[in-house]
Design a protein around this nucleic acid. Sequence first.
DNA 1: CGATTTCACTTAACATGTTAATCATCTCCC
DNA 2: GGGAGATGATTAACATGTTAAGTGAAATCG
Lengths: 176, 176
Amino acid sequence: MAAKKSQTGSSSEAAETARRAPMREFSRSLPMSLLRAREAVMRQFRPALRNHGLTEQQWRILRALTAVDAIEVTELARVAFLLGPSLSRILRDLEARQLIERRAAKADLRRAVVSISAKGMKLIEAVAPTSEAIYAEITGRFGARKLAELQEMLGVLERSLAAMEVAGEESGKIEE
Amino acid sequence: MAAKKSQTGSSSEAAETARRAPMREFSRSLPMSLLRAREAVMRQFRPALRNHGLTEQQWRILRALTAVDAIEVTELARVAFLLGPSLSRILRDLEARQLIERRAAKADLRRAVVSISAKGMKLIEAVAPTSEAIYAEITGRFGARKLAELQEMLGVLERSLAAMEVAGEESGKIEE
DNA sequence: CGATTTCACTTAACATGTTAATCATCTCCC
DNA sequence: GGGAGATGATTAACATGTTAAGTGAAATCG
């Protein structure tokens, strides 16, 4: 089971090092931990959403819209945590399905204002009980206190990194 | 600023409730917290990976391959936490770029065995220092102890939900 | 005013996520 | 050994993630 040592010789000396001593256990890296945890959670919700013809992101948007009377697209992107292009496509689809309504802002024709329709609201109402039940089950299994603690830590992590420089621009092509 | 009340009447009674009292603060839901936290982390790494022509998933695969001599595709999917179809596409690309090598298993021709190439290993070596530096910076900002604690909680959450039934099959179309 | 720049949003192009279907092998059992 | 079913991998089809480019409207400045 030993790695194929001394095969290519000195050429892959560092390669051998990496092979023997992985940078990090990888599956234990923070991004992987967060990814797996999120997937474990979403795996519970996706079937229920799917039964109502909604994807996770479409659900996020409709959910966000129930909390406001109307909202501009950019602000909606921030709240639902979606990038502009994704949001554009999804809004086009949701509008075609008449789950939302869109109109131009009077004061600034560049801006579009979105709101949920009665039909969209009914859909939300149909899914909400199941969704809430699942959330309650998760809370029960993991523990309400631990859940709050976890979310607090996630928030701290997020804020810790918010101010962090996004380095990696390699050479000094910072300005263009 | 009040919601358009008493417009459609009793029909959207629950809708009004939802509008006034959102099911959950939404942005504070567990899935959103996990998503934002992960994005905050990955936002630090993506530029560096991009400078080396790698996406996050391609990096995950190469990283996973450095820990083993060779691995079957299904097992690689499990380790790198990718679905089969995604992995298939990415392996095709990585193979075309000669960053990995693939061959059929002798005992079972259905199975494919993948390993990282010398060229792939060199790429890993080129990115690793930057990647490690970023990880160290994150650890420093958030705190090594808190980081370990967070990952422990994420693991517990994952295992708490592993046994949970994935309900939501609506009607009894469990069998097909 | 009018040209330039900025801004909000959309489109484009490519990579991945997600589920279903397909294809080739392999196993099992008669 | 041969056919039904199981299995590993890929392909198909559609939705989203991600970055760059495009479009129209607004703000800025000369």
